[in-house]
Write a protein that binds this DNA or RNA. Structure first.
Length: 480
RNA sequence: CGGGGCGUGGCUCAGCCUGGUAGAGCACCGCGUUUGGGACGCGGGGGUCGUGGGUUCAAAUCCCUCCGCCCCGACCA
C-alpha cells in the first residue's frame, strides 16, 4: 500500500487537491511572495505542452505572437469605465524606480487591453490595416484576496489574444472562432476535459466587454471551473483609446476589438478532472513523460541483462513516445511505481530477469490504478501496443469525465430543486431574471449562472425565479 | 477584506496551559545487507522555535506588531 501522503477525495476534496499539487511536484507556494507560486519542473513541462498545442491553434487561425511591456501607465487603466471598476482594486503599482518617485505610477499588467489599445490606435489608419490579429504569452498579476495553486494566484501565466476588426460581425466571428476552434477544441481534445460553451450573463461578463463567451468544465466535486473566455469588446476600448480607421467611404470609424485568454488555471482543471486518490492522472497528449520504464534486478549480472533488453526496447521509441528509463539504484522498484503513479505517468513498463527470459514486460496503465491495470504482454509489437493504449486512454479519460458531468447535471424546475442540485453539480434551468435576481440567488445558494449555453433546447418553460415564460436555459453551479 | 484555525530541523508534528535554554517519526549523509507495490541494521549531520518589539534574572512557552499558510464567506482567469 502507498504511504498515506494523499488525503482521500471523499474526506476533504480541497486538501486532496493541495496534496496532489505537492506530491506530483507541480508547484509550491512561494511563501516569500504573497499569493504567488513557483511552478516546478513537472508542472511547467505540462504547461509547455499546453502552450505548444494552443499556440499551434492560435497560429492556424491566423494570429501572430507579439510582446508588450509588463508595466502599464496607471492612467491607461482608468480610461474605460467598467474596466477601472473591475480591475482597479486588484492591481499592484510601481511608484518608485531608479531611486526616485515616478511622476506617474505604473501598474503591473492585470491584463493588457489598455496598453495594447494605445498602440493599436497608433498602428491602425485604414480599413486595409484590419483585421489585426495578435496574441501574447505573458505573466500577469492580480492582487487576489484568496489564492490557491493554479486555480487563483496573484501572478499567473497565460496567453491573451487581442484583435481589431472593421465590422461588428467580423469581431463576433473572431470571438466565436477562438471559443470553438482554439479553446473548446484544445480543452476537449488535448486535456480530455469536456466543456459547455456559452455566453456570460451581464453580471459575469468581462469588465468593459460587450459580450463574454466562455467554456465551463465540471470538477470532481461538482463545482464549475471557467476554463477559458473570449470577449467581444464592441467599440468600448476603441472609444477609450481612440482606435479609429478610415473605411472604404472615407469615413472615420471606431474599430471593433476582441480579447481572449486561457491561463495556468487549466493545470488546476486538469488535476481536478482526472486525478484520483493515488495521485495525478494525466491525459497522454499532455504527459511530459508518457511511458516510464522501471528495470528490476538483484545483482550486476541481472542488471546488465535487463538493461540490454531495455536499450533494445526503447530504441524503437525515439521520436514516437516521450519516455524515461528510471535506472536509479538507490530506490526500490516499489518506491518507483508509487512515485510515477503520483506524477501521473500514463504507462509504466516493468521489466526484470523473468521478463527477459520470457520476452515479456509488465505493462501498467495509470487510468486503472493498482494491480487491476497491470498485465503481462509480449515485447514483440510493444511500441504499437503502447501507442494504441495511449490513444485509448485519451478517449477513456474524456468519456469518463463526460459521463461524470452528465451524471451530475440535472434539469430543475423549482427553486428548491435548484438549491439542492447545486450542492452536487450543475443545475439546468429556464431563466428570465435580471442581474439583481442573479445576485440574490448567489447570496441564497452560493451558486451563479455559469453560462447561457450556446446549445439551447428550443422549447419554452417557466423561469426558475421569476416564473415568466422563456425559451432561454442557463447553467447554475457553484464555481471556483 | 470579515470570521475561525495555525506557524518549532527538509516534511508531519510533540513541547507552550503551569517560563529554566529543544525532541520524535519520516527525509538526508556514510557503511553494509537489500531490490517484482513506498526495504533493513549500525553510525552521523542538521533547528537564533515565522518576524520585530515588550515583560522577566531567564521566553518556543506570557503580551503586542507585522508577515505567511489553511478553512468558511465576499471578489475573481
Amino acid at each position: 500500500m502507498p504511504k498515506d501522503v494523499i488525503t482521500q477525495r471523499s474526506v476533504d476534496y480541497n486538501q486532496w487537491y493541495l496534496d496532489i499539487v505537492r506530491e506530483a511536484d507541480l508547484a509550491e507556494v512561494a511563501e516569500v511572495v504573497r499569493g504567488c507560486i513557483v511552478v516546478k519542473a513537472h508542472g511547467w513541462a505540462i504547461w509547455e505542452l499546453m502552450q505548444r498545442a494552443l499556440d499551434d491553434r492560435i497560429k492556424a487561425t491566423g494570429h501572430s505572437n507579439v510582446q508588450f511591456p509588463l508595466l502599464i501607465p496607471k492612467s491607461f487603466i482608468m480610461k474605460e469605465a467598467e474596466h477601472v471598476e473591475g480591475f482597479a482594486p486588484e492591481v499592484a503599482e510601481v511608484t518608485r524606480a531608479g531611486g526616485e518617485e515616478l511622476a506617474e505610477p505604473y501598474v503591473i499588467r492585470p491584463t493588457s487591453e489598455t496598453i495594447i489599445g494605445y498602440f493599436y490606435s497608433k498602428w491602425i489608419r485604414s480599413y486595409r490595416d484590419l483585421p489585426l490579429l495578435y496574441n501574447q504569452w505573458a505573466n500577469v498579476m492580480r492582487w487576489e484576496m484568496r489564492t490557491r495553486p493554479f486555480l487563483r494566484t496573484a501572478e499567473f501565466w497565460w496567453q491573451e489574444g487581442h484583435t481589431a476588426h472593421a465590422t461588428e460581425a467580423e469581431a463576433e466571428e473572431e470571438t466565436l472562432r477562438i471559443l470553438h476552434e482554439v479553446y473548446a477544441d484544445f480543452v476537449e481534445r488535448e486535456m480530455a476535459v469536456p466543456v459547455i460553451r456559452g455566453l456570460k450573463t451581464e453580471k459575469e461578463k468581462f469588465p468593459g466587454a460587450l459580450r463574454s463567451y466562455c467554456i465551463e468544465a465540471m470538477m470532481q466535486d461538482g463545482r464549475a471551473l471557467q476554463a477559458g473566455t473570449s470577449h467581444n469588446l464592441g467599440q468600448n476600448f476603441a472609444r477609450a483609446f481612440d482606435i479609429t480607421f478610415t473605411d472604404q467611404n472615407n469615413t472615420i470609424q471606431y474599430a471593433w476589438t476582441t480579447s481572449w485568454g486561457v491561463s495556468t488555471r487549466l493545470i488546476g482543471a486538469l488535476i481536478m478532472t482526472h486525478s484520483d486518490d493515488e495521485g495525478l492522472v494525466l491525459p497522454p497528449r499532455l504527459a511530459p513523460i508518457q511511458v516510464v520504464v522501471v528495470p528490476i534486478y538483484k545483482n550486476d549480472e541481472e542488471r546488465s541483462t535487463v538493461m540490454a533488453a531495455v536499450a533494445r526496447m526503447t530504441a524503437a521509441w525515439k521520436g514516437r513516445l516521450r519516455f524515461k528509463v528510471d535506472d536509479r539504484d538507490n530506490y526500490s522498484p516499489g518506491y518507483k511505481f508509487n512515485e510515477w503513479e503520483l506524477k501521473g505517468v500514463p504507462v509504466r513498463i516493468e521489466i526484470g530477469p523473468k521478463d527477459v527470459a520470457k520476452e515479456t514486460v509488465a505493462l501498467a496503465r495509470r487510468d486503472i490504478p493498482g494491480k487491476a491495470g497491470k498485465s503481462f504482454v509480449p515485447q514483440a509489437g510493444l511500441t504499437e501496443r503502447i501507442e494504441a493504449l495511449l490513444e485509448e486512454m485519451q478517449t477513456t479519460l474524456f468519456q469518463r469525465a463526460l459521463a461524470f458531468r452528465e451524471a451530475h447535471t440535472a434539469d430543475v424546475t423549482t427553486y428548491d430543486e435548484l438549491k439542492e442540485q447545486v450542492e452536487r453539480g450543475f443545475a439546468r434551468a429556464f431563466w428570465a431574471g435580471d442581474t439583481t435576481d442573479e445576485k440574490r440567488i448567489q447570496e441564497e445558494t452560493r451558486a451563479t449562472i455559469r453560462c447561457i449555453p450556446l446549445e439551447q433546447p428550443g422549447t419554452v418553460g417557466r423561469c426558475i425565479y421569476t416564473g415568466r415564460e422563456t425559451d432561454r436555459q442557463v447553467i447554475f453551479a457553484r464555481a471556483y
